[in-house]
Nucleic acid binder design. Structure first.
Lengths: 110, 110
DNA sequence: TTTTTAGATTGCAATATTACGATAAATATT
DNA sequence: AATATTTATCGTAATATTGCAATCTAAAAA
């Protein structure tokens, strides 16, 4: 146990869950916020922005990268991280779709 | 450790992270999908739909409820669960806002 | 070439999550 | 009243996540 039964769900369901999970931590939301604020971005800046140690930030960046939310350009010694627009679009579509379906519904709670 | 440093982040960041976290599991995405498909909904149906035991489903429902994603009407013996539109709107706004900001950006990776 | 700087990786402790059997609680049915 | 149905809760095992100190790697600067 403690293991998600991934195989029993659809590709789509797992895909959305993976991206959502990556966003399911305030530090990672904070990183996204910061990447939006600054035009070019280097990880060192992020470490200074966050109230977390460098290895912890590095780990959070890795998770965002694995989920496809950000991508990194190597820039000599440093790395320039950016938001991957595709993943954001995916989420936007998902929630827009839910909204449309909700509006069509008749029997609602409360 | 293993404990998120919630206090160091903003209310907004924590709020989004909480909702995203609740959606960060395929079973819970699956529950949302099912609630969208059916007009009225009873937990018993969900248990039959999911490849998980009843206590596990009940737990997932609880988490969705705590995050404000669903709400439940007691209906005699059973409970009618529905998606809470407010939480979906919150997420939609969040990602729409990101999209807008991304379009304005000049220096991008790759 | 030595030293500095930026970032990743390793290893580990503390805590959280996932899953489920057993059981409880509360309403429905017989 | 006795039984069935629906959902929640408890307890527990297995695994995952969070966070950091220490360390490693690779490029930059001295």
């Amino acid at each position: 146990m403690g293991t998600t039964k991934t195989k029993h769900f659809t590709e789509k369901q797992n895909a959305i869950a993976t991206i959502a999970k990556a966003l399911g931590h305030p530090a990672r939301i904070s990183i996204i916020d910061y990447l939006l604020k600054t035009d070019a971005c280097i990880c060192g800046d992020i470490v200074n922005e966050l109230p977390l140690a460098q290895p912890t930030v590095s780990q959070h960046l890795k998770e965002l990268k694995n989920a496809g939310l950000i991508k990194g350009d190597i820039n000599g010694n440093a790395i320039c991280y950016c938001i991957d627009e595709k993943s954001i679009r995916k989420l936007q579509n998902y929630f827009a779709n839910i909204s449309v379906k909700l509006k069509k519904k008749k029997n609602k709670c409360h």
